[in-house]
Design a protein around this nucleic acid. Structure first.
Length: 434
RNA sequence: GCAGGGGUUCCCGAGUGGCCAAAGGGAUCAGACUGUAAAUCUGACGCGCAAGCUUCGGUGGUUCGAAUCCACCCCCCUGCACCA
């Protein structure tokens, strides 16, 4: 039997990663020996986003401490939809869609865990493998009988759906909790899995699973929830003007990803370092101290961005992101070589390739809207009025905004074909004329 | 099925015949200040550079004029009934 790191729980607590747990006193002792634990990820998109990162990384922390992690991809539960704390009934996705998403998530999740560990190799399972085989009568008689609707209705996670005016909950979503409970019981039986972790919104579902595993198999099992990531200013974590921050580099480029973390507010950054990185809490405290005694800009954001980008996108992704950042925010663009521009495009700087003959087709504002740089021409106009729209560092006039040929005149280009468009302080888009 | 309540621009939520592209708040974007922070102040916020165009669940109608009135339809909520 391999040894485990018994300081795990202490470390999780120090990181603020423990929201609730069952069997408060016993869990610590239970984790003194290697155990198997799981966390579920439902396919609600073709990629995980950074919100899922906290449970995923915690699974990793458990593995590093010597326990065996199981990542469950919800091929079955994803077909139903978790109602927990959702304001509205969700639209069901088709089976094909969910199947495809399951495959994507399986790959993504696998990158974080170690499957070759001698003592505690990770596993990935899909709950469709057992739920899909179950027939209705078995479900109702063998599983359903253990659930009290009275109890389920009391759950905070579905309460607002039941009480709230203007919404409701279908039996389908209401049954979700039973399926998730079944997962835990099933994993206990098949893999001796004795701990489920998840976001604190999963508490109700997790407790349901603990109860069911006990009733069906008399298992000694535990549940542990992690805090939902919140921001000090109350806005939603993980979203920016351009949408969700995904883990998939095709949906969120390493550059955008790096920038996201770099823009973390001071009030959140040390908490995020504890939540998301594998830096020790001591090291993080040290960073915080240094930042406090130093004037001006803290180093924490940069550490966070570096750690996270390297973790998700690797060293190459990090370097690309830093290269772009360096050029745009500290360098002067006229020092760029022709090759640098090509590199920026490769590195993932948002860019568009246009034919010179096509320029006269639309106004510059329309081109920028089409390129996805801004939401509407009004925003471009607003920026132009404030001299906040620059092409190769020169402000665009109101006339040029309408006349693309003038705005992107050949003599204004760099190397005859590059135009770096800057809107506001942070938004960049590269246009190449071919 | 019956009765009652409701569906407004990203969200919440005003608006009950012209002054409504539609109050207010939130979110978001931009500017100033800064550290590519926070807080604050300013501007924008259906689409369009503009002229102008398209909206208030849907379709028709009344009217010089409708988010606002009428008819029918769709959807949601609450209660009752039906079913058992």
């Amino acid at each position: 039997m391999s040894e485990v790191d018994t300081n795990l729980l202490k470390d999780l607590r120090a990181r603020g990663l423990v929201a609730q747990m069952t069997g408060e006193d016993q869990l610590e002792a239970w984790l003194a020996s290697p155990r198997t634990l799981y966390c579920g990820f439902d396919p609600t998109a073709d990629s995980l986003h950074i919100g899922s990162l906290v449970p995923l990384l915690t699974l990793k922390r458990f593995q590093l401490a010597g326990h065996t992690p199981i990542a469950l991809v919800g091929g079955a539960t994803g077909l139903i939809g978790d109602p927990s704390f959702k304001a509205q009934e969700r639209q069901l996705n088709t089976e094909e869609t969910v199947h495809a998403w399951v495959d994507s998530l399986r790959k993504q999740v696998s990158r974080f865990l170690d499957f070759d560990a001698q003592a505690n190799p990770a596993k990935v399972v899909n709950n469709l493998d057992w739920v899909g085989k179950m027939d209705v009568l078995s479900f109702l008689r063998d599983v359903g009988k253990h659930f009290s609707v009275n109890n389920m209705v009391q759950k905070e996670s579905v309460k607002q759906r039941i009480e709230r005016e203007g919404s409701g909950i279908s039996f389908t979503e209401f049954s979700y909790m039973i399926l998730q409970s079944l997962d835990f019981a099933e994993l206990f039986k098949a893999h001796g899995c004795s701990l489920q972790i998840g976001g604190s919104d999963q508490w109700g579902n997790i407790v349901g699973g603990v109860d069911l595993a006990k009733r069906l198999y008399g298992g000694q099992v535990y549940g542990l929830t992690l805090p939902l990531v919140t921001k000090a200013d109350g806005s939603k974590f993980g979203k920016t003007e351009s949408g969700t921050i995904w883990l998939d580099e095709n949906k969120t480029s390493p550059y955008a990803f790096y920038q996201f973390w770099l823009n973390t507010a001071d009030a959140d950054v040390y908490k995020f370092l504890r939540y998301f990185t594998f830096l020790s809490v001591e090291r993080i405290a040290e960073i915080e101290e240094q930042d406090q005694s130093a004037q001006g800009r803290p180093q924490a954001q940069s550490v966070l961005a570096t750690e996270m980008t390297a973790m998700i996108h690797g060293q190459a992704g990090l370097e690309a992101a830093q290269r772009i950042t360096e050029v745009l925010f500290s360098g002067s663009i006229d020092q760029l070589s022709e090759g640098d521009f090509a590199q920026l495009m490769l590195d993932g700087l948002p860019s568009t390739v246009l034919a010179r003959s096509a320029l006269s087709e639309k106004s510059l504002s329309q081109w920028l809207v089409d390129a996805g740089m801004v939401g509407s021409g009004k925003q471009v106009k607003d920026a132009v009025n404030r001299s906040a729209l620059l092409v190769n560092n020169k402000a665009i006039s109101a006339d040029e905004m309408v006349d693309t040929t003038a705005a992107l005149a050949e003599e204004k280009s760099l190397f005859g074909r590059y135009y770096l468009v800057k809107l506001g302080k942070k938004k960049y888009h590269l246009i190449e004329i071919e």
